[in-house]
Amino acid sequence: MSTPDTRSLLVSLQLSDSAFPSGFYTMSHGLEGYSQARLVRQGGVEGLLRGLLLHSVGPGDATALARAHEAAAVGDWRRVRLVDQLLHASKLNAEMRRASVRSGHQLTDIAREAIGGPALEEWARSVKAKETPGCQPVATAVAYAAAGVGTVQAVASDMSAFAVSFLGAALRLRLSDHRHVQVVLHALGPVIAAAAADAVARDLEDMGGSVPLADVMSAQHERAEARLFAS
């Protein structure tokens, strides 16, 4: 028989699995824009991902996840919606906002069916009523809270899922191979751990990344004539 800690670990593995149909497979997280502009090659994927984890995902999405998780765990839905609205407003590019909302809605629907519970029902009601956008990190926070996964584990798991998704896009864009992806993922483990710890400690008022070039690449990607990824 599994213990509560084991069950929460299994849920975090399920939600962060690349096979979980949250929509991450449709995103390159800006990598396709860099590739189209010929600003990244195989040797530069690790550095780009490191920068995004430290200066975009950690201060932005991961911080929102941490604060929303804490609020959802105690049933403070006003606070959960506030975090979601602030995160949505902090995303400068339309395609990034759309991708996050689309993925968040997909994750909410699947988590309601797979995990269930009153927390996910209340969150789904708020999203359906358009009281809040429903961004992916906040939807993930609610799902983790509903399953009893702790804040630190939730943040680290979602940042790992981002890294795996980014590297999966690198594979499809032929910027890496399967062996190199595993080397990079292992090398960035300490970066994910550090960025996750910073996100858990960061106040909501300090949420928000600073990645000007990534924003420019996303803006260009929105208008690209041909695109493999939604972001």
Rank of each mutant, 00 (worst) to 15 (best):
residue 161 A to T: 07
residue 173 L to N: 11
residue 48 L to F: 05
residue 97 R to M: 04
residue 54 L to N: 05
residue 178 H to M: 08
residue 164 V to A: 15
residue 152 V to S: 09
residue 38 R to A: 13
residue 122 E to G: 06
residue 174 R to Q: 15
residue 44 G to E: 12
residue 4 P to F: 01
residue 5 D to A: 15
residue 106 Q to W: 00
residue 140 T to F: 12
residue 87 L to N: 13
residue 2 S to V: 13
residue 211 V to I: 13
residue 42 Q to F: 07
residue 52 L to Y: 08
residue 6 T to G: 13
residue 77 W to V: 07
residue 198 D to Y: 06
residue 167 L to W: 04
residue 216 V to D: 08
residue 145 A to V: 09
residue 132 T to H: 06
residue 15 L to E: 05
residue 121 E to P: 00
residue 210 S to A: 12
residue 212 P to W: 11
residue 96 M to E: 12
residue 90 S to D: 14
residue 117 G to S: 04
residue 6 T to S: 10
residue 78 R to M: 04
residue 174 R to N: 13
residue 21 P to G: 09
residue 224 A to G: 03
residue 38 R to N: 04
residue 144 Y to D: 02
residue 153 Q to F: 00
residue 78 R to G: 14
residue 15 L to M: 03
residue 106 Q to I: 01
residue 184 V to R: 01
residue 164 V to I: 13
residue 102 R to G: 12
residue 225 E to A: 15
residue 174 R to V: 06
residue 135 C to F: 01
residue 64 A to V: 08
residue 141 A to Q: 08
residue 11 V to Y: 10
residue 66 A to S: 11
residue 14 Q to D: 11
residue 38 R to F: 04
residue 168 G to S: 11
residue 3 T to A: 07
residue 69 H to Y: 03
residue 225 E to N: 02
residue 147 A to H: 04
residue 71 A to T: 10
residue 123 W to Y: 15
residue 34 Y to M: 10
residue 1 M to Q: 10
residue 9 L to H: 11
residue 155 V to L: 06
residue 213 L to D: 09
residue 168 G to P: 00
residue 225 E to G: 02
residue 177 D to W: 03
residue 129 A to N: 14
residue 156 A to K: 10
residue 188 L to G: 08
residue 213 L to R: 14
residue 110 I to N: 03
residue 174 R to K: 10
residue 98 R to M: 08
residue 19 A to C: 10
residue 220 Q to H: 08
residue 213 L to V: 15
residue 110 I to M: 01
residue 222 E to C: 06
residue 65 L to R: 01
residue 146 A to H: 07
residue 201 A to W: 01
residue 80 V to G: 07
residue 10 L to W: 03
residue 219 A to G: 13
residue 47 G to H: 04
residue 203 D to Y: 01
residue 121 E to R: 12
residue 215 D to V: 14
residue 154 A to K: 01
residue 50 R to Q: 13
residue 40 V to K: 05
residue 228 L to E: 12
residue 49 L to M: 15
residue 166 F to L: 12
residue 59 P to W: 02
residue 208 G to K: 10
residue 186 H to N: 11
residue 112 R to L: 14
residue 60 G to V: 02
residue 116 G to F: 04
residue 173 L to H: 07
residue 10 L to C: 06
residue 226 A to Y: 06
residue 149 V to Q: 09
residue 1 M to H: 06
residue 63 T to K: 05
residue 83 V to F: 06
residue 13 L to V: 09
residue 208 G to D: 11
residue 14 Q to M: 14
residue 95 E to I: 15
residue 167 L to K: 02
residue 53 L to T: 04
residue 173 L to R: 05
residue 117 G to C: 08
residue 64 A to L: 03
residue 214 A to H: 15
residue 197 A to Y: 02
residue 45 V to G: 06
residue 10 L to Y: 05
residue 115 I to L: 15
residue 216 V to M: 07
residue 106 Q to C: 10
residue 165 S to K: 08
residue 163 A to L: 03
residue 75 G to V: 08
residue 32 E to H: 07
residue 97 R to N: 05
residue 92 L to Q: 13
residue 160 S to D: 13
residue 164 V to F: 09
residue 76 D to Y: 01
residue 203 D to I: 02
residue 103 S to K: 05
residue 41 R to D: 15
residue 18 S to K: 03
residue 132 T to P: 08
residue 127 V to M: 07
residue 133 P to M: 07
residue 210 S to T: 14
residue 131 E to P: 07
residue 221 H to G: 04
residue 135 C to N: 14
residue 83 V to R: 05
